[in-house]
Design a protein around this nucleic acid. Structure first.
Lengths: 168, 168
DNA sequence: TATTTATGTCAGTCATGTTGACATATTTCG
DNA sequence: CGAAATATGTCAACATGACTGACATAAATA
C-alpha cells in the first residue's frame, strides 16, 4: 500500500465528477424532452393523428414554401415515410402544394387556413410550457440554454440551421 | 382608416416577437435532440438493437437496483413494451435480475459487466457531444441550460426527478 | 437528345408503441 | 388465517412510423 493517492481512483481520460455531471445533464434533457413532446400528443391522439403529422405541420408552418427535399433533410426520414403522412395532410386540407416558380418539378408546401389553425392548437401547450420555463429561469438562463443547444447540433450543419431558424 | 396603429398588428395575448423567439427555441431543441439521439443509433443498428435497448441500459446503469415499476414510470411505456426489449437484454446477458430484499415480488435490475461495457460504448459519443458543447458554451451557459431544462419538466414530478438525478 | 433531378408510389419489413386478458408469487388488510 | 391488492410476466392482436428496394413521371440540365 505504497500508493500515493492524490488523484481519485479510476480517474480515466475524463474526471469522474465531470462525467457524473454530464450524465445528469443527459437525463435532464431526456426528461425535459419527454414532457415537452407529451403536450401535443393528447390533442393528436384524440384527432387520429400522430407526432409525424405535427412535425410536418410545424415546419411547413414555420417555413412556408419549403420543398419536399428540404423537409426530408430536416426530419431525417425517407420520402416514403414522409409521403404517407403528407398525403393525409393534403387530403384533409391542412397542407397545399404549389409548383416551384423557378423549378416546376418542385412541390412547395404551404399550410391552409385550416392547417394553421390546427398547428396553432397543437403547438400552444408546448409554447406555453417553454414560455413559463423561460420566465421562471430568467433571461440569462435562457441565453445559456440557447447557446448550449446550438453547440449540441452537428457542427457541419450548425450554421445553416441557425441561419434558417433566425430567418424563419 | 381611422385606426390608431400604435400596437403591432395581430398582437394577441402574447407578443409577436416573443412568440417568434419561442418558436426558434422550440426548433433549436428539436435539432439538438435530433442530433443528440443520432449518436448511439449508428452503433445500435450495427448491433441489431434499437433506442429502446439503449434507454433501458442507460437507466439501469444509472440506477442499479431499479425495479420494473420505476423503470416503467421513467420511460412512460407499458410493461408489455418494456418486457419485449428487457427480455432480450436479459437473455443476451446485459442485464440481470435479483429479487428485492424487502419485497421479494420485485425484480431489481442491474447491468452485468458486459452490459456496463456496451452501455458505455453506446453513451460515449453522446457524452463527448455534451462535453464539447458545455466546454464551448462555458459554465454560465451550462448553468442556464440546466435551469431551463428543469423548468421544462412537468412541475408535478420536477422535485422527485431532480432529487433522483442528483442522487443517481 | 441523353442524363440527372425532384417527386410520387407500390410492396414488404421492422421496431416499438398500444389494449386487453390472464397467470403467479408475494404482501398486506380485515 | 383467508381475501384482496400488488409486482411482475406473458400471450395475442393491432397501430404508427420508421426502413429498403424498385419503378414511374415530369422537368431541368449537360
Amino acid at each position: 500500500m505504497t500508493d500515493i493517492n492524490i488523484l481519485p481512483p479510476d480517474s480515466g481520460p475524463h474526471d469522474a465528477a465531470e462525467t457524473a455531471e454530464i450524465r445528469q445533464a443527459i437525463e435532464l434533457l431526456f426528461f425535459a424532452y419527454r414532457d415537452f413532446t407529451s403536450d401535443p400528443d393528447v390533442i393528436l391522439s384524440r384527432s387520429g393523428y400522430g407526432r409525424a403529422h405535427h412535425r410536418i405541420l410545424h415546419f411547413v408552418g414555420a417555413y412556408p414554401g419549403i420543398n419536399v427535399a428540404q423537409l426530408l433533410a430536416i426530419l431525417r426520414i425517407t420520402k416514403q415515410s414522409l409521403g404517407r403522412v403528407l398525403k393525409q395532410l393534403l387530403k384533409q386540407g391542412f397542407v397545399e402544394q404549389r409548383p416551384g416558380k423557378h423549378d416546376r418539378r418542385q412541390r412547395l408546401l404551404f399550410l391552409t387556413g385550416k392547417g394553421r389553425e390546427f398547428e396553432a392548437r397543437l403547438s400552444s401547450p408546448q409554447h406555453e410550457r417553454v414560455r413559463r420555463a423561460f420566465a421562471a429561469a430568467g433571461p440569462d438562463a435562457v441565453s445559456g440554454y440557447l447557446q448550449v443547444l446550438e453547440h449540441l447540433i452537428n457542427e457541419s450543419e450548425r450554421k445553416i440551421i441557425l441561419d434558417a431558424i433566425k430567418r424563419g
